[in-house]
């Protein structure tokens, strides 16, 4: 897999770390306990393309939002948060 970092250009997979699904957002004030459980633990994990957080750990330290197909590994977009 190669990821086109908006700052560094296309780089190999080994420079990046994936952490989590980017479709979940951190609950704000007034959130319920269930909101927090959903945020921290529950994932859709479908077969469809999805947004996810990647970190250019061995590069510029930017956090990126990839739109990526989890079946073909095709990367449709690389955005900044």
């Amino acid at each position: 897999m190669r990821i086109a970092c908006p700052y560094c250009g296309p780089r190999g997979l080994e420079e990046f770390l994936y952490t989590q699904d980017a479709s979940v957002t951190r609950p704000g004030a007034g959130a319920t306990g269930q909101d927090w459980v959903d945020y921290v633990y529950i994932r859709e994990n479908t077969k469809a393309p999805r947004k996810e957080f990647w970190y250019h750990s061995a590069g510029c330290h930017a956090w990126l939002i990839l739109t990526r197909d989890v079946v073909t590994h095709e990367i449709m977009a690389v955005d900044l948060p």
């Binding site: 190999g12 997979l13 080994e14 994936y18 994990n45 989890v70 590994h73």
Partner: peptide, 13 residues
């Protein structure tokens, strides 16, 4: 592999 996948294959790193 470190990233979500439903493809039963991995990468070179």
């Amino acid at each position: 592999e470190g990233y979500n996948s439903y493809a039963a294959r991995g990468n070179l790193p």
